[in-house]
Amino acid sequence: MRFLFVVTSNPFAKDYSTIVGLAKSLVKHGEIVMFFSGNGAYYTIRPETRELKDMGIKLLYCAHSAYQRGIEKPLDFFESSSTYNLSKIMQDCERVLSFN
């Protein structure tokens, strides 16, 4: 099974620990893709998110949101993407969870 997390809340909000906890348990049941948009773009400069990468999770971020927020150097394990790609990714995922 493929899970898609769409995260627009900032990385210091309550959602962070929920996302990490959920990812730890769901990663045993399938593949996880995370898409960071809006204030979720700030995840790309938070070093602790490496633990998500180490779980084998694919980490994508909206380049437009990052640009809007002046983020110039996202951490190297984040992949630049767009909301257009998000609409494509949704086709392949069985479950979508959003954190706004």
Binding site: V6, T8, S37, G38, N39, H64, S65, S82, T83, Y84, L86, S87, K88, M90, Q91, N100
Partner: peptide
């Protein structure tokens, strides 16, 4: 709030293939 602008932007993008 920025969320409404972001919501509409993402909704329009998803509308391309969903």
């Amino acid at each position: 709030s920025w969320k409404s602008h972001e919501a509409l932007r993402v909704a329009m993008a998803l509308g391309i293939s969903c």
